[in-house]
Amino acid sequence: MEVRTIKVFTTVDNINLHTQVVDMSMTYGQQFGPTYLDGADVTKIKPHNSHEGKTFYVLPNDDTLRVEAFEYYHTTDPSFLGRYMSALNHTKKWKYPQVNGLTSIKWADNNCYLATALLTLQQIELKFNPPALQDAYYRARAGEAANFCALILAYCNKTVGELGDVRETMSYLFQHANLDSCKRVLNVVCKTCGQQQTTLKGVEAVMYMGTLSYEQFKKGVQIPCTCGKQATKYLVQQESPFVMMSAPPAQYELKHGTFTCASEYTGNYQCGHYKHITSKETLYCIDGALLTKSSEYKGPITDVFYKENSYTTTIK
């Protein structure tokens, strides 16, 4: 009895394709271990004539594949690729409408935090270190965002349907971005203890939790000093293409032309909904596939993004 075979390709990165001759009487799992086709788990399936010449994702289970996976995804987590594939199996079914010149995501599976993050990423200057993220990001900007969303979920250790947080998501993504040249110098002034300067680099240099107003941050924000008295913390120097200011959701007025974009969060910790506000020729609110415009805006804002380049204080 002759062994019926077909020729397929296996890959971990969709760049390096490895030619395989597979036995049609055995499952993919018996031949390769966990195997995925377009995100779908085909591990328990036997090869079919229609699979001839198709590319299958496999887990990096030998040295060659491990090197290829690390170079593309910059992670050695053995569960990463499987999590990416199972997320992709959902995100490829989502709709990605162009809204006001940006790629958004039609609401499904509690994905409003991903839509808000995706919209924000198209408006701030950011370059990702893992080629996987950078490639998928370019495709997302062009309207094909399924891979990018699935990668975000995998890097953030999230599953489809789980509630997510924009600030946490951005923080994970910033860790995989090139923020080497970003720098922030802060000064804390206390009447009792004097003053202390701190220099922050990388992710810490672009994120701040405690106030939404970048102007206020430049002037000074009140913080408790270690001595128990009130101290003032203010920005001395900022070198970065953008800054992200966050605070627990509270009524906040966004003035046209003073910011790049913002995240609105309605609801409580267990259950809520994100919308995205962007400042173009007027203010726009993007909620999944829905767009509304207004000249002014007041609502429960939790993150505001500002364009920056270089700032030095005039406070002496």
Rank of each mutant, 00 (worst) to 15 (best):
F9Y: 14
V12H: 10
N14V: 02
H18E: 13
Q20N: 12
D23P: 08
D23S: 14
Y28H: 04
F32R: 12
A40I: 12
D41E: 10
H48E: 15
S50D: 13
H51R: 05
H51N: 09
H51Q: 08
E52V: 11
P60W: 11
N61T: 13
D63T: 13
T64M: 13
R66V: 12
R66C: 11
V67I: 13
V67R: 14
F70P: 06
E71H: 06
Y73K: 05
Y73H: 02
P78R: 01
F80N: 01
G82H: 13
N89S: 13
K95I: 14
P97K: 10
K106D: 11
D109E: 10
N110K: 06
T116S: 09
Q122R: 00
I124P: 07
E125Q: 13
E125N: 10
Y137T: 02
R139Y: 10
R141K: 15
A142Y: 10
E144D: 14
A150P: 05
I152P: 06
L153P: 05
K158I: 02
T159N: 12
G164P: 00
D165F: 11
D165W: 04
D165P: 02
E168Q: 15
S171Y: 15
L179E: 05
K183L: 11
K183R: 12
R184D: 04
V188M: 09
V188I: 13
C190W: 00
K191I: 15
G194C: 07
Q195D: 13
Q196Y: 14
G202Y: 02
M209Q: 13
K218R: 03
G220K: 02
G220E: 03
I223H: 13
C227S: 02
Q237P: 03
P241S: 08
M244H: 03
A247M: 11
P249R: 05
H256K: 12
F259N: 08
T260C: 11
T260E: 08
S263I: 15
Y265V: 10
G267I: 11
G267K: 14
C271A: 08
H273I: 05
H276R: 01
S279R: 00
T282I: 07
D287F: 00
D287G: 05
G288E: 00
L291Q: 12
L291D: 08
E296F: 14
E296M: 04
K298Y: 14
D303L: 08
K307W: 05
K316H: 15
